[in-house]
């Protein structure tokens, strides 16, 4: 059993009003509240801070809209890496492991969680650097498999259903105008030609009223 790790966040460090769904619990913090300790499933606290900082450079919060920190991307990634995806439960992992053309897909032996653990060793202290230094550091690792995963998972965490821990309050969906799993556009699909049609986003839970177990919670 690993020692329990927490990521301590405050509304001040992450900005504004937040909703975190922690192990099934949903609550809000605002700037007046005390910092919140979020239990981590895979990362230790230092790793989580680095991933939070790195994903925030990949998908920054700025005048275009919310970024990785508002969406809770680090929490999303933490859960993914602790789940079946992170440990390669459904990837073909029989050897021999050979390096071939990139056209044949990822051939490495390391699971996503192993790739992170190794990759994060090279980013020690990353969260304490200035943004420009952080960007420089990320440029150095841009061509690695680790960075490829980090970038991919950042996008996933921005735009997944909130049940996975990312896209909190559907900030990602609101930013791009994706309404989520709606039941019908039958009356709208032949209309709104040339104009933005933006139904209010709703999560799977909100649309169906059903609590679905996400794949990362698979035992």
């Amino acid at each position: 059993m690993r020692r329990r790790h927490f990521l301590t966040v405050s509304a001040a460090t992450l900005g504004g009003l937040l909703v975190y769904s922690l192990d099934g619990k949903v609550f809000r913090i605002s700037t007046e509240d005390k910092p919140v300790r979020i239990p981590l499933r895979f990362f230790d606290e230092e790793e989580a801070r680095i991933v939070a900082a790195a994903t925030e450079r990949i998908f920054p919060s700025d005048e275009t809209g919310p970024g990785a920190k508002e969406a809770g991307v680090v929490i999303f990634i933490d859960r993914q890496l602790a789940g079946p995806y992170g440990i390669d439960r459904y990837r073909y992992t029989q050897g021999p492991f050979e390096t071939g053309s990139a056209d044949l897909g990822y051939q490495g032996k390391e699971s996503p969680s192993e790739v992170y653990r190794e990759g994060l060793k090279n980013l020690k202290g990353f969260d304490r650097l200035e943004p420009a230094e952080q960007d420089e550091k990320l440029k150095q690792i841009e061509s690695t498999h680790f960075f490829e995963l980090l970038r991919r998972h950042t996008i996933e965490g921005m735009f997944c259903d909130p049940m996975h821990g990312g896209n909190i309050d559907m900030v990602g969906w609101q930013m791009v105008g994706f309404p989520g799993p709606q039941m019908s556009y039958r009356d709208a699909v032949g209309k709104h030609f040339g104009e933005a049609y933006r139904p209010k986003p709703a999560s799977l839970l909100q649309v169906t009223g059903i609590k679905v177990r996400p794949s990362e919670d698979e035992k």
Partner: peptide, 9 residues
């Protein structure tokens, strides 16, 4: 199938 309308999974 309505419970599976989740892009990630």
């Amino acid at each position: 199938y309505v419970k599976e309308m989740d892009e990630l999974d």
